[in-house]
Design a protein around this nucleic acid. Structure first.
Length: 407
DNA sequence: ACCTGGTCCCGGGCTCGGTTTT
DNA sequence: AAAACCGAGCCCGGGACCAGGT
């Protein structure tokens, strides 16, 4: 019971076949899993990775109740009102919503199949449930594709077909009576859809569709007002300790991580489970590279050091296109001198053999990444020089975790 | 005035799914 | 059955223009 890992690493489930090409995160992680024999310490990468969630969220019972209250009509076969789940980074929103929707989806499936085999017509069915991550569905095309992908087993094209065509397929898939409830995660991020855009795009579908948006912004600051809002607060210290202890017990050998170290991580992370796990993960791979069988204080230090604060979540960074991740990877390998300005960094990255992009594109990507908060530009007052002063660029994402997942 | 850094935007090409022609 | 063609979304490249400094 409980805490078999889910999603990207877990065994394929009927509703999400493994060959689903959506996230190259899948590939990256399964490539990791292939190197099992080289490990001395980490038993399960997913268990201690900030990119992965557990089947049973830890310490979120009250919030789960509020979410279930908000979608209450589904339990009598109706569509729920619009719901917005919101809270700070690393507070467990995605873990909660993803786990809940997975469970609801399989319950709905069983119920539908049960009714079908018993040929009891006329019984109100439950709507279908789909979870879509807007990080891999940041356009209208992507959103519709994501929902359709969650509903049918056949692969859905990701190129070469129009959005209208895809919407028509979705409509023909849904009946007029029983629609679908779509959870759309990570709305309102730089590269993802805003909540009002999600609503607009889904009302264009001529079938019953309800949505549950998940984001960080205060609902009062949004362009639309969801009918129901479910706030999620940051983890309390002891809840974060529990979460880390739980995860470490799955991902690491007994005794590899001391309780004091867990407490230190929890104190430092200040309620942010993402940051805590990112630091733990960094510490674990550092220890493993040194062929240790337990984690030392110095490993923890390095792990924490590799997580800037504030930082964007590593899941966000890993969802970027290949060109953006190669630019970031190259940037991490530059020395301090080459990072002194965007211009210098551009030249140094362009000179690398692994990068085939032009100067202009690299420069644009660096500025875009800074705009999105993935990099920080810090203007250095460079007297004696003419012109506008350059700015040094620093990563704002968990560097060790990133490096580990990108080759 | 002059210079360099930063922002914004869009056309064209790439790659693919689907359709028509051979 | 194969090949040629078409049209879709998205990424790359690049340039026009704006901002901030001496």
């Amino acid at each position: 019971m409980g805490n078999r890992r889910r999603g990207v690493i877990g065994s394929p489930t009927p509703q999400t076949p493994l060959e689903e090409p959506d996230m190259d995160l899948d590939e990256r992680i399964s490539r990791r899993l292939g190197r099992r024999d080289e490990r001395s310490l980490i038993r399960e990468y997913g268990a201690i990775s900030p990119t992965d969630h557990l089947d049973e969220p830890v310490g979120r019972e009250a919030t789960l109740e509020r979410l279930l209250d908000a979608i209450e009509p589904v339990f009598s076969g109706d569509l729920p009102p619009s719901v917005y789940v919101w809270g700070p980074k690393g507070s467990g929103k995605s873990a909660l919503v993803e786990a809940t929707f997975d469970r609801l989806a399989s319950v709905a499936r069983e119920q539908r199949e049960g009714i079908h085999t018993a040929t009891r017509t006329g019984v109100p069915g439950t709507p279908a449930f789909v979870y879509v991550d807007s990080r891999s569905a940041g356009s209208e095309f992507g959103l519709i594709r994501g929902i359709l992908n969650g509903l049918i087993d056949e692969p859905v094209p990701d190129h070469g077909v129009s959005t209208d065509e895809l919407r028509a397929r979705l409509e023909s898939r849904l009946s007029r009576r029983n629609g679908v409830v779509a959870a759309v995660d990570h709305v309102g991020e730089p590269q993802t859809l805003a909540l009002d855009a999600v609503e607009d795009l889904l009302t264009k579908v001529d079938r019953p569709i309800a949505w549950v948006g998940v984001g960080r912004k205060d609902p009062d600051s949004l362009a639309i007002s969801p009918e129901s809002a479910v706030p999620v607060s940051a983890y309390r210290r002891h809840a974060l300790v529990d979460l880390l202890t739980n995860r470490a017990s799955i991902g690491l050998p007994r005794g590899a991580l001391s309780h004091d170290q867990v407490r230190e991580l929890a104190r430092w992370a200040d309620g942010d489970a993402h940051d805590a796990l990112a630091a733990l993960f960094g510490a674990a791979i550092t220890a493993e590279k040194a062929q240790r069988t337990s984690i030392l204080a110095s490993d923890i230090e390095i792990g924490i050091e590799a997580v800037p604060r504030p930082c964007v979540s590593v899941g966000q960074v890993l969802s970027f296109s290949e060109s953006r991740t190669t630019v970031l990877m190259s940037l991490l390998q530059l020395d301090d001198e080459d990072r002194r300005s965007v211009k210098a960094a551009t030249a140094a990255i362009a000179a690398r053999e692994s990068v085939s992009l032009t100067d202009g594109t690299i420069r644009r990507l660096l500025y875009e990444l800074a705009e999105d908060g993935v990099l920080e530009r810090r203007t250095v007052s460079n007297s004696t020089a003419r012109g506008r002063p350059p700015s040094r660029i620093e990563p704002r994402f968990p560097t060790l975790v990133f490096r580990e997942f990108v080759e």
